[in-house]
């Protein structure tokens, strides 16, 4: 760095940036549910550690080859080792992080959401998309969203009709359908 002034200025900017980031984090803090605590961090790090270890073992089995003739396992091995190292680092430094969110009673909602997704995936090939989609809308609006029955029915029917028109007639996409 030849220009002293730029250096100093950049350092200063770095500080303002750091301040800003803190400020931004603070801004968002108020909307966040309570943090999950060290258990969340440790479990997450252990999971990624396991991914890295399994990846490394499997990669070993694919054949590493050599640097001049890299085998299929070499790259996955390198990546897996990086994951393992980073996960260990996270185990060390991550315990105090507060970027996780505690699971709460409200976490049941996404669970139900996933269940409706899965149900839809199973039903589409056999039932066509219309009725399962209608079911999903009703569940999401009435039970997950707490809408009134009236708006649930109106929005559900409207949505499915719109999709029917859009996919089958607008875009002519072959979607399994009953009607």
């Amino acid at each position: 760095m030849s220009d002293e002034r730029t250096t100093a200025r950049r350092a200063g900017e770095g500080d303002i940036l750091a301040e800003l980031e803190a400020e931004v984090a603070h801004e968002l803090e108020e909307q966040r549910p309570p943090a999950g605590g060290p258990t969340y961090q440790v479990v997450a790090a252990l999971v990624t550690l396991a991914v890295g270890l399994v990846g490394a073992v499997l990669a070993q089995g694919y054949g590493l080859g050599s640097l001049s003739r890299p085998g299929p396992g070499l790259w996955p091995m390198v990546v897996s080792v990086v994951i393992v190292v980073l996960s260990l680092a996270l185990l060390l430094v991550g315990r105090g992080l507060d970027d996780s969110e505690r699971f709460s009673r409200a976490s049941v909602l996404p669970l139900v959401g996933v269940a409706t997704f899965i149900a839809l995936a199973f039903l589409i090939p056999t039932l066509g998309f219309e009725l399962p989609a209608l079911g999903l809308c009703v569940v999401w609006l009435r039970f997950l969203g707490g809408e009134s029955w009236r708006s649930t029915i109106v929005v559900s029917l409207g949505t499915v009709a719109a999709f029917y028109a859009l996919f089958l007639y607008g875009l002519r996409i072959p979607l399994p359908h009953l009607f």
Binding site: G113, T116, F117, L120, A121, I124, F129, A133, L136, C137, W140, L141, L144, G145, G146, E147, S151, V155, S156, T159, F163, F167, I173, P174, L175
Partner: peptide
């Protein structure tokens, strides 16, 4: 209300991903 938009986006997602490769 976000509650009304949620199922619509959910459906676009599922039906959309299906149509990529049927």
């Amino acid at each position: 209300r976000p509650a009304i938009l949620a199922p619509i986006t959910a459906l676009i997602t599922i039906l959309g991903v299906y149509t990529i490769n049927n």
